[in-house]
């Protein structure tokens, strides 16, 4: 747990300076963090999504209908996942709102972001900001 916390803080520090991200270093840290995730799905708001372990949910996570989470997914506190969305191998920081019908794989979503990118399929990138369109969202490949 302590090591997980330390790593997530390091990842946050790196992505707080998007101009200086060394993607190779970030990828190593990202993979190391995901490999440490233990299943923690005891408390969430929503009706029986599909979980492929390990999935780690912080407090007060809201999950919509027919959502598929996992494997290797971390969701930060107070984040919301919309109906029919699918997330694997990804880190979602706190206070994020992810809309309906989005597929994310190997992604990091920075805190306070809102992604209403219906029918999009995104992989291997950092996503930040708030938008209804894939073209407007800040996207850094890694």
């Amino acid at each position: 747990m302590e090591s997980m916390k330390k790593k997530i803080m390091e990842i946050e520090e790196i992505i707080n300076n998007p101009e200086n991200i060394k993607t190779v270093d970030l990828k190593i840290l990202f993979n190391s963090f995901l490999s440490e995730i233990k299943n923690r799905i005891a408390s969430y708001i929503g009706d029986y999504p599909t979980f492929i372990e390990p999935v780690f949910l912080e407090e007060n996570v809201k999950i919509g209908d027919d959502v598929l989470l996992g494997p290797n997914v971390y969701i930060g506190a107070n984040s919301e996942i919309g109906d029919y969305t699918e997330i694997s191998n990804s880190i979602v920081f706190e206070n994020v709102k992810i809309g309906e019908n989005l597929k994310l794989e190997n992604c990091i979503i920075t805190k306070n972001s809102t992604l209403n990118l219906r029918n999009s399929n995104l992989s291997n990138c950092i996503l930040m900001g708030s938008s209804d369109s894939e073209d407007e969202i800040m996207k850094i490949k890694f």
Binding site: Y48, F51, E53, P71
Partner: peptide, 23 residues
């Protein structure tokens, strides 16, 4: 072991297994 909690689904499907196998 790896647990898949299917929620409302009454069977596993190939996609579930693929997600595990590829990782």
């Amino acid at each position: 072991t790896i647990q898949i909690n299917t929620g409302r689904e009454c069977a596993l499907n190939a996609y579930h297994i693929h997600q595990i196998i590829k990782n």
